[in-house]
Design a protein around this nucleic acid. Structure first.
Lengths: 172, 172
DNA sequence: GTATTTATGTCAGCCATGTTGACATATTTT
DNA sequence: AAAATATGTCAACATGGCTGACATAAATAC
């Protein structure tokens, strides 16, 4: 036995002790399992390109913010520029992302998806969109608003304005 | 500049193109950012023990399911036994987790938190509980139900029964 | 009662993706 | 001209995934 299995298991263990089992703990685990499955879709697609999740994140945010600068991308991803450089170099070499020197500030390298990059992004995001669409549907009308409120409230206070700005249509 | 910065940024980039910016894409990003902040709390605590997130997950699920077997834990975590072995060995060596030979099946090694392990878990989970509590509070009454419905619906169909079982008080 | 399967552990090596620290270059700002 | 900024790069290291191979003890099957 070497591969991670995925069979439903009746846990033989003792029931969870009451002091660690309330609705808050359940919510914590829902986040863990929900996120785990949520990011599971793109992995198969990525591995066909020999890319990883780090590449996915870069492609996602460059696609969302065409012309984003390296510094801005670093600020979103919260990784070091050395970490970013590795995946960014690969994406540029293989023509999924391209750089253009900033017009106003020629030190900047503004990032754009190539047509191939845009196509990759579409393929990566499609199953996630479908998953979220189904989930919001299944939870019924009104659930979406409540869900979003909770998700936003989970953020660190200091990140909330930035995230609200990032996820929102700029023209709104 | 070497550390990941955390300053709110007005993105200079073009507004997100309409075809990739709808409420589904926003939801996808809410999950990304929400999860990112959600797991940020425990990291500082862990590094003081020279533990990582992998240790956190083991301590969490052993705490939730005292007497869980190695196979069951592998099934929850979806990692290989070699990966688990590394962190489990450290947790056992440093007396945060202990093993007892199974009574019915003496091949099994049932896992339990020591008092130190339970104390570590409490410290790790406290900020997460607080975060979730505040978020559910802030979103108002009724939001909790909707939020949970959506999170459950995000799961892969085949995982839903298992997760429902795992997160639920067994006596319910 | 021997043979097989199961639960667990372990060694060795590889890969992806994070980290630090140091330094280089071009460009803008002071 | 000097300093600050945006970016890139080299080197080394840590964490936590992975595969493959093999070992042991206990349970189950024949």
């Amino acid at each position: 036995m070497s591969k991670p299995a995925a069979s439903p298991t009746k846990t033989q263990a003792t029931p969870p002790p009451a002091e660690v089992n309330d609705n808050l703990t359940e919510a914590i685990e829902l986040l863990f399992f929900g996120y785990r499955d949520f990011i599971s879709d793109p992995d198969a697609i990525l591995s066909a390109f020999e890319f990883g999740r780090a590449h996915h994140r870069v492609v996602h945010f460059v696609g969302r913010h065409p012309g984003i600068t390296v510094a801005e991308l670093l600020d979103i991803l919260r990784i070091t520029k050395q970490s970013l450089a590795r995946v960014l170099r690969q994406l540029i070499e293989r023509r999924f992302v391209e750089q253009k020197t900033g017009e106003k500030d020629r030190r900047q390298r503004r990032l754009y998806l190539t047509p191939e990059g845009a196509e990759l992004l579409r393929r990566l995001v499609a199953p996630q969109r479908e998953r979220v669409r189904k989930a919001l549907d299944a939870a019924g009308p009104g659930a979406e608003d409540a869900w979003r409120k909770v998700m936003l409230a989970l953020l660190n206070e200091e990140n909330r304005p930035e995230v609200e700005h990032l996820i929102t249509r700029d023209g709104k």
